[in-house]
């Protein structure tokens, strides 16, 4: 799942001399002054040749970036304070190998790599977060100093479009509210849980959102479809997590975040009501992510 590729055309590649290139230019000036002063035709010739060589190397410099396309992968969320990750895939669609391509986000250091013909490379860009909520992706820039290090070809800023999400930082400690038996009649009757910890009682069909941890792979191999091992649960409990009514909103969200994480870890089925439609009790990574995202985006919906 990626956004449409952005391909570097001629108008989006620029050239500027590097610092070495400027030194090179200064040397040329010295050569030219000497040629003029001594009226030395050979010195003139060498000066002009050097200048032409450096100028013409710009075509190779430009071509090194042209036609590269930048695809965007799915960004990885993280908690506030830890870096989220944006994923960029750089594709060389041509038969021309590319050398010394550097990808640099707006802030932070770049990464340099070569691309063989028709090769592509995935680059993860860590991005520090300070605030909870959606993280605007950085703009990235491709550049290279190929072939002689005298010129630097660089692309325009390429905006990434898919924002990452910074979850609220979990509070260090937040006790879970007391659970109550699941209202789910079927579950109650069976007295089983999808989570581990109890005695194995049998198999049931996998429900969407359930952890794949307990899939009975032998049953899958036997062609009976995706079955889940059920265990008689000490842990078969259900909690509803809600925003505490008073306190600093960020602090409350942090506590809630901790509760969500603990509930998931301890094998609860948990539901979440903050605002809007409640998330019905469930468990598993997808449910966890949904809950954390709701917390991350909470402020936006209130204001």
């Amino acid at each position: 799942m990626s956004f449409p590729a952005q391909t570097l055309g001629r108008r989006s590649v620029y050239l500027l001399p590097t610092r070495e290139g400027l030194w090179f230019g200064a040397t040329l000036l010295v050569l030219l002054l000497a040629a003029i002063n001594y009226g030395n035709g050979l010195a003139y010739a060498i000066t002009f040749l050097l200048a032409s060589l450096a100028t013409l190397s710009s075509t190779a410099a430009q071509r090194n970036l042209l036609g590269l396309s930048v695809h965007e992968g799915l960004p990885r969320a993280n908690f506030v304070g830890s870096p989220v990750t944006f994923r960029v895939i750089i594709v060389n669609p041509s038969a021309l190998p590319r050398f010394g391509i550097t990808i640099t986000p707006e802030r932070g250091s770049g990464r340099t790599f070569d691309l063989a013909a028709h090769e592509h490379r995935t680059v993860d860009i860590p991005w520090q977060t300070r605030r909870r909520g959606p993280v605007t992706p950085p703009r990235v820039r491709l550049s290279s100093r190929y072939p002689f290090g005298l010129l630097r070809a660089f692309s325009r800023h390429i905006p990434l479009e898919d924002p990452a999400i910074a979850y609220p930082a979990p509070a260090p400690h937040a006790p879970l509210p007391s659970g109550r038996p699941s209202p789910d009649s079927e579950q109650e009757a069976l007295g089983v849980s999808a989570e581990g910890g109890g005695d194995f009682v049998g198999l049931s069909a996998l429900r969407p959102g359930e952890s794949p941890r307990h899939i009975h792979w032998k049953a899958v191999a036997a062609g009976r479809g995706l079955m889940v091992k059920r265990f008689a649960g000490l842990a078969e409990r259900e909690v509803w997590l809600t925003l505490p009514p008073v306190g600093d909103i960020e602090e409350r969200l942090s506590r809630l975040c901790r509760q969500v994480l603990d509930a998931e870890q301890q094998g609860y089925r948990y539901g979440l009501t903050v605002d809007g439609p409640p998330l019905v009790p469930n468990a598993g990574p997808l449910h966890l992510e949904a809950c954390l995202s709701t917390l991350a985006l909470y402020e936006d919906t209130v204001r």
């Binding site: 002054l33 003029i36 002063n37 001594y38 009226g39 035709g41 003139y44 010739a45 002009f48 040749l49 200048a51 032409s52 060589l53 100028t55 013409l56 190397s57 190779a60």
Partner: peptide, 26 residues
């Protein structure tokens, strides 16, 4: 690159203005 540069340098060589006498005369 050299082969490409030679014609360019040649043009510059022919038309670049020559200053008689040099700059600091040594």
């Amino acid at each position: 690159l050299l082969l490409q540069a030679i014609p360019l340098a040649l043009i510059a060589y022919v038309v670049f203005p020559r200053i008689a006498g040099g700059l600091w005369r040594s």
